[in-house]
């Protein structure tokens, strides 16, 4: 009797100690769950219950509407796979923003956050993801400054690539608004101009 009691205590203690794992996989309990966890729909909450009640909801803006303060959407639609008609048509589109009034520090911030990771902080197509071929990204990102192809590329065509993606590059329409994308392109163009100017002066 006594022996079995001791053995039982030993087993319980070992289990108790072993279960004190330092990794915490549960969030724990709360005093009042209905005040801690929102009754209303929070961001990213599952909306399956709405569907059961027959409510249509897909979290997308109504077609034909646009956000307040944003620029008019890009007039050219995406090419079908294998087609490049619209890609070339986009050359005619001009930047609707007044380039002189763009806040270039904000444009630079947007570039560094969203583009610099591949195209490099110096716009040399050698960001931390490519790192001269040593990074994980298997393709060389476009050299925005120093490559004649991109220096001479019209801003509309750049905007097309940023909006719909081009080759390995994905679409940035979900991360940057129309206005922000035009700001970034104005920033890239301003950098390209600067380098071109310094190059010609160096040759002289």
């Amino acid at each position: 009797m006594k022996k079995s009691l001791i053995i039982l205590t030993v087993i319980i203690t070992v289990i108790a100690v072993a279960s004190c794992n330092r990794v915490r996989r549960t969030p724990g309990r709360t005093y009042m769950p209905d005040m801690t966890y929102s009754r209303a729909y929070e961001s990213y909450a599952s909306t399956d219950a709405l569907k059961k009640e027959g409510v249509f909801y897909n979290a997308r803006p109504v077609t034909g509407t646009m956000a307040r303060g944003d620029e008019m959407p890009f007039p050219i639609s995406e090419d079908k796979p294998g087609d490049t008609v619209n890609y070339f048509a986009s050359r005619q589109v001009k930047n609707p923003l007044n380039v002189a009034s763009i806040d270039m520090t904000e444009a630079e911030r947007l570039y560094l956050v969203n583009c610099g990771i591949c195209h490099g902080t110096k716009l040399d197509g050698n960001g931390p993801l490519y790192k001269g071929g040593d990074g994980p990204y298997p393709a060389k990102p476009a050299t925005l400054v120093g490559d004649a192809k991109y220096e001479s590329m019209p801003e509309g065509q750049m905007f097309y690539s940023a909006t719909y993606g081009k080759n390995m590059m994905g679409s940035y329409a979900s991360q940057l608004t129309t206005k922000e994308r035009w700001m970034v392109i104005a920033y890239i163009k301003s950098k390209q101009v600067k380098v071109a100017v310094t190059d010609t002066t160096a040759k002289k």
Binding site: P136, P138, M168, M169, G170, Q175
Partner: peptide, 17 residues
């Protein structure tokens, strides 16, 4: 959203480096 992951992972499909 998944498309942000795919911005890079369209090209990066192995973890080796």
């Amino acid at each position: 959203s998944v498309n942000v992951c795919m911005n890079c992972h369209k090209a990066i499909n192995t973890y080796e480096k």
